[in-house]
Simulated assay, not measured.
Amino acid sequence: MPPLSPSSPPSPATRDAVVATLRAAGCVFAEDEAELILATARTPDGIAALVDRRAAGLPLELVLGWAEFRGLRITVEPGVFVPRRRTEFLVEQALAQVPDASVVVDLCCGSGAVGAALARALGPVELHAADVDAAAVRCARRNVEGRVHQGDLFTALPDGLRGRIDILAANVPYVPTDEVGLLPAEARDHEPRTALDGGTDGLDVLRRVAAGATGWLAPGGCVLVETSERQAPAALEAFSAGGLTARLAVSEELYANVVVGVRQ
């Protein structure tokens, strides 16, 4: 996946018109969004089409067709979870824990952003990504230079990975079922519920990952999941119950909480 590259600046008149339209539609960061739209569309008709879609409420990443993640331009499509900037912290924690990883799995991969970012940072690795959703798998295959599998968590993975995984990144859904309706409309209306809904307390999928990870990890390998501050104590408990040495990493800047479990 190529890194983002600069483009030629648009004319001030065009930029001002786009900013005005976006601001009128309620876009808080109209100036920043205008720059991205103008860098993506190369013709007046193309610019107008993207501005109209954004003004109608479509998430910016789906308007552009990509999301920035750790300096990469990740292709995103309707019906696929859009990678969050806070998840970059999960990638950083994985690299810090196993800086010489050679086998990497991106579980619940969505667009494949985490796997793509890890592979870019690590260099040549054996990379696998997996998701239960067919749309996510199609999208990930456009972003990941590795094997992408469809299936439910570990059942999607080749059996030959057992005991070999150095980094298992699992960006599991962790929103409690009763709170999905409280999410911002851009997530609630445009992303698959399976990528958001984590069950009654939000930890159903996390517990399944924690229970099964040890058998797939190499000695010293780690599994990482993102969770909320409120859920962190229960998440740590689940990792410990799964036989993992668990710790919580927090980024106040990115509002990110990542549980790291290591197989000893």
Results as ranks from 00 to 15, higher is better:
H128L: 10
L182V: 00
N143A: 04
V80Y: 09
D197C: 06
A130C: 07
R85K: 05
S102I: 09
P176M: 11
L153D: 13
Q97W: 09
G112H: 13
L118R: 12
F89Y: 13
D106S: 09
T87A: 07
R85P: 02
V144Y: 09
T177H: 06
D133T: 07
R138L: 13
C108T: 12
P192V: 11
G123D: 15
A169E: 00
E186D: 15
G181H: 14
H190D: 05
D159R: 15
R164P: 08
E88F: 08
Y174C: 02
L182M: 01
G115H: 04
P83C: 10
P99S: 09
A170Q: 14
H149R: 12
I167S: 12
L196N: 10
D159H: 11
T87Y: 05
G115S: 11
V148I: 10
P124A: 13
A116S: 13
G123K: 14
R138Y: 05
R193W: 07
G115A: 05
R147E: 15
A101N: 09
A169D: 00
A129Y: 04
V104G: 06
R164G: 11
T87F: 08
V125I: 11
V103H: 00
L127C: 12
G146Q: 10
L107Y: 03
R86K: 13
L90T: 01
L168P: 01
E92V: 03
V132M: 04
H190C: 03
V82M: 04
F154M: 05
Q150F: 06
R84F: 05
R193Y: 08
V180R: 02
Q150Y: 01
L182Q: 12
A187Y: 10
E186Y: 10
A156Q: 14
E145M: 11
P83V: 09
R85T: 08
V91E: 10
T177S: 15
L183I: 03
E126S: 12
R142V: 01
E145G: 11
E92S: 05
Q97R: 15
H149Y: 15
R141C: 07
P192C: 06
